[in-house]
């Protein structure tokens, strides 16, 4: 009983996306011009050993929109992001409970390597492989596809262009990826993830180590990417969330406090805790 109560409570807090969350009529979504859910998360709990990092999370990540997760350090943003591509399974001694759907299907019904190609991820610290720039971008392609030289070169160029990096590296594609700047490396990691045409891109504080110019480039990028990609971004930068996000979820101590349209969250959030956080009164 308590469980369904808290699920309902979450529903009430985010009326505008919940309207389509529980309606299975595609027609209604079309009529309301609302995006399809990319991820549907129900009653999600996550444990590192005995420590519960996520508590009864219910939410929807809309398709082809930018959703930002905000909240104080240690509240579980990264953990949630990493359950979306099942990276948490590589951490020993962890446990996940609850249901997650990717599109129409159970997230756990996909073979994990397929899932991770559909749901790409960019980590907080850029970690290019110690290979050439070209080989970094080609890495994911080589795993699955047998492309000939020309197709490969085209795909690499396209990915680098999408990541707004092409002009800066086109003359040194075969140099080590460790020789470019941190901001360029982060865009390289984005290009690497884009090369396999993911449907979703998970970004964990992608700009935290970058200067304002690189940050602006990546933010611009997100606007273009959401044309063909669902984006979930974790950020500590409230201004960034306000600039790039269509939806914002606020987390506290492993719980989702509130998820709503970005405007709503920043102008008049339903919860006092959200208000306190975004105005900098704690966290």
């Amino acid at each position: 009983m308590a469980r369904s109560f808290s699920a309902n409570a979450v529903q009430i807090r985010r009326p505008d996306i919940d309207r389509f969350a529980h309606s299975d009529a595609a027609a209604e979504r079309e009529r309301n011009q609302l995006p399809w859910p990319q991820f549907t998360v129900a009653d999600l709990n996550f444990f590192y050993g005995n420590h519960q990092a996520l508590k009864n999370i219910n939410l929807i990540v809309p398709n082809r929109r930018v959703t930002a997760f905000i909240g104080p350090s240690g509240c579980g943003k990264t953990t949630l992001l990493r359950t979306f591509n099942r990276m948490n399974e590589t951490v020993p001694n962890t446990r996940v409970e609850g249901r997650i759907r990717l599109g129409e299907h159970d997230l756990f019904s996909y073979p994990v390597t397929t899932l991770r190609r559909v749901v790409g991820m960019v980590f907080q610290k850029p970690a290019p492989f110690p290979k050439s720039i070209f080989d970094n971008v080609a890495y994911g392609l080589r795993l699955e596809h047998r492309l000939n030289k020309r197709e490969m070169a085209e795909k690499v160029e396209q990915s680098l262009r999408r990541a707004a990096l092409w002009d800066e590296v086109k003359d040194k594609l075969h140099q080590s990826a460790n020789g470019i700047s941190g901001g360029q490396q982060q865009r390289l990691c984005i290009a690497r993830a884009l090369a396999v045409d993911p449907e979703v891109l998970l970004l964990d504080e992608p700009c935290s180590a970058l200067d304002p110019i690189s940050t602006a480039k990546i933010e611009d990028l997100l606007f273009e990417l959401k044309e063909f990609c669902t984006i979930v971004i974790v950020t500590h930068n409230m201004l960034q969330a306000a600039r790039v996000a269509d939806y914002v979820g606020f987390f506290l101590n492993g719980e989702l406090i509130e998820l709503n349209r970005a405007k709503h969250i920043f102008q008049n959030p339903d919860q006092q805790q959200t208000q306190d956080y975004i105005t900098g009164r704690f966290g």
Binding site: T113, R116, R117, F123, Y139, L143, C189, A193
Partner: peptide
């Protein structure tokens, strides 16, 4: 570094790949 391994896994490579 673990970040390199995770980078590979996150691109859909299997553990042995």
């Amino acid at each position: 570094p673990r970040s390199l391994r995770e980078g590979g896994l996150a691109l859909g490579a299997s553990k042995s790949e």
